[in-house]
């Protein structure tokens, strides 16, 4: 529907207050439409004018923090990143992300997801703790090596992939696309040497084996990350590791400072630093 013909918009919101309700229920609100309105803007409008007790999570309003993941018209999306007009007109149906317990209204309980995320050690693991604590320079990494994990590092942990995953919906053992994707992000980072440590969790029954490759996680990701690909790549790495064909990369060394390298003759000398 075009912005010109839209004057009012109806929101159908799934409400649940654990102190008052035994089960979730739906409520409808009509609010005026304004140009450029996002689903999140509409929620703020409803809170201001109709339902001051409506609860959800949001922060940055620009698709960066990953707080406002919710089910909008049947698809897990970021409310701040979804224009009302792109939903095709009609009613905007908003519910909390599925596959999570509901804290209240549109607030899902994300703690289990982050517990699993933490268990998979989503950080750079290296032996040289001294260098990490007191860095003397940057770790060396080529542009090609950066490409191996770059897209997976765009994940904002909004939980949309977990909400869309049919395996996570039914299989309590499955770690889910976000934690597994992030484990792969660090496993494929040449600055990291933590593959063996993460393998203790990944090689077990909570690992990537339970993924059926439905691909829904990649379809809904608001940042364009492809967690399904990360999981398949991780399966390949673990199989190669079992066959002893996995190349354990040494964590990247500290790169030489520009002043320590040998300058080519055809490159002019850098001007002296001004600070």
């Amino acid at each position: 529907m075009s912005e010109k013909t839209l004057s009012e918009i109806t929101y159908r919101i799934r409400r649940f207050n654990p102190e008052r309700d035994s089960t979730p229920h739906w409520e409808e609100y009509r609010i005026p439409y304004s140009a450029g309105m996002t689903v999140l803007d509409g929620l703020w409008r409803i809170k201001e004018t109709h339902a001051p007790d409506l609860a959800w999570r949001s922060s940055c309003r620009m698709g960066v923090c990953g707080s406002c993941g919710m089910l909008v018209n049947g698809k897990a999306r970021l409310a701040c990143n979804t224009q009302v007009t792109e939903l095709g007109g009609g009613t905007v149906v908003v519910a909390p992300l599925p596959n999570f317990d509901i804290v209240r209204d549109l607030v899902p309980e994300l703690a289990p997801m982050f517990d699993t995320h933490r268990a998979l050690m989503p950080y750079v693991i290296r032996d040289d703790a001294q260098e990490q604590e007191h860095p003397t320079g940057e770790f060396w990494q080529s542009a090609h090596e950066l490409e191996q994990y770059l897209q997976f590092s765009y994940c904002i942990k909004c939980g949309c992939c977990m909400a869309a995953c049919p395996t996570y919906a039914t299989d309590a053992l499955y770690s889910g696309p976000m934690p597994l994707g992030q484990a792969h992000r660090y496993n494929s980072d040449t600055r990291d040497g933590g593959f063996s440590a993460r393998k203790r969790v990944l090689a077990g029954e909570a690992g990537p084996w339970r993924c059926h490759y439905a691909g829904e996680c990649s379809r809904v990701c608001p940042k364009g990350v492809d967690p399904a690909k990360a999981i398949q790549l991780m399966k390949r790495e673990l199989v190669l590791d079992y066959l002893r064909l996995h190349k354990e990369h040494c964590p990247a060394p500290v790169a030489k400072k520009p002043t320590e390298g040998k300058r080519r003759d055809n490159i002019p000398e850098a001007p002296p630093p001004t600070v």
Binding site: V201, A203, G204, E205, W209, L238, V239, Y242, L243
Partner: peptide, 13 residues
């Protein structure tokens, strides 16, 4: 804990 890695590899093979 590594059992599934082994079983999965044999499953593929």
């Amino acid at each position: 804990m590594m059992r599934d890695q082994k079983l999965w590899t044999w499953h593929l093979a």
